[in-house]
């Protein structure tokens, strides 16, 4: 458990660390990237034909690579997407969920059969490719934009102040909450609970959640007070003051054109 908490802490710290990407996209203004990611994600979500969805996924991957993202930052793409989409999409391939032309017979007996169907595979592939497109674009946005700049950009695009505050606070104290959980576990180990059954561990984890929640509430209050004391009024200001340039406008416009192109191609009568 301790290793798990520590790994989670490291992963979070890596995600919350300032953007390490040095590509051209990292220097773009947050609003341009948010608009670009949003229109492309919406486009990928409404596409229907397999070639169009595949093109959106390919575009997402190309943008991610071009942004210079590498290593741990891409873990949700290579690990998260296959795992989570497989759990949802694989059953859709079966004739029980999506009837149609069978592609492969998996089981036969008693006049019944379990097959992979062509419409099912198309549904699953579409779902998988949409997920790839959306996750790649979102990762590119978060991987090339510092968390504070991202929240600031969202606020400038009209996100209500209260949501901006919640996002900022969450980013500020998430790592501290994890540390509390880790310390709680260490304290328990130090009191001789080293050897335990899974059930005992689960029971402890359930009880520990309440304590971590209370600690996190206290922490949230403390962090908020400390931020307020230094002039935070709900709108986070960052060191690199965002300036909208012609290049940012071009990025947003290009994304709009690409999104519109994908949708038109998808809907064009064949």
């Amino acid at each position: 458990m301790r290793r798990g908490l520590a790994a989670l802490g490291l992963a979070l710290a890596a995600q919350l660390a300032p953007s390490q990407a040095s590509g051209w996209l990292a220097s773009c203004e947050a609003r341009a990237k948010i608009v670009a990611a949003l229109v492309l994600v919406v486009a990928a979500s409404v596409l229907h034909s397999l070639p169009a969805v595949a093109a959106a996924a390919g575009l997402g991957l190309v943008i991610t690579m071009a942004a210079g993202l590498r290593g741990r930052k891409l873990m949700p793409l290579w690990l998260g997407v296959p795992l989570f989409t497989a759990a949802i999409a694989l059953p859709a391939c079966l004739n029980l969920v999506t009837p149609g032309v069978p592609l492969l017979v998996l089981w036969q007996g008693g006049g019944r059969e379990l097959t992979l169907t062509l419409p099912g595979v198309i549904v699953a592939a579409r779902f998988f490719l949409r997920a790839v497109a959306c996750v790649a674009l979102t990762l590119t946005l978060t991987g090339t934009t510092a968390p504070a700049a991202l929240v600031s950009g969202l606020r400038r695009l009209g996100l209500p102040k209260v949501f901006g505050m919640v996002l900022t606070m969450m980013q500020r104290y998430l790592v501290l909450v994890l540390r509390t959980a880790e310390e709680l576990h260490l304290a328990r180990l130090s009191r001789g609970y080293g050897v335990e059954t899974v059930r005992q561990g689960q029971r402890w984890a359930a009880a520990g959640m309440g304590i971590v929640l209370l600690s996190s509430l206290r922490l949230a209050e403390g962090v908020h007070s400390a931020m307020t004391a230094r002039g935070y009024d709900g709108d986070i200001q960052t060191l690199h003051a965002p300036r909208w340039t012609a290049r940012d406008a071009a990025v947003a416009a290009l994304a709009l054109v690409l999104a519109a192109g994908l949708v038109l191609w998808d809907r064009w009568p064949r």
Partner: peptide, 21 residues
């Protein structure tokens, strides 16, 4: 720990004057 909530020391030092515009 409640006072140091920024990602880097530089951001931490810049926090107050930035919020004060």
């Amino acid at each position: 720990e409640v006072q140091l909530f920024c990602a880097t020391v530089e951001e931490e030092l810049a926090f107050a004057p930035l919020q004060l515009r």
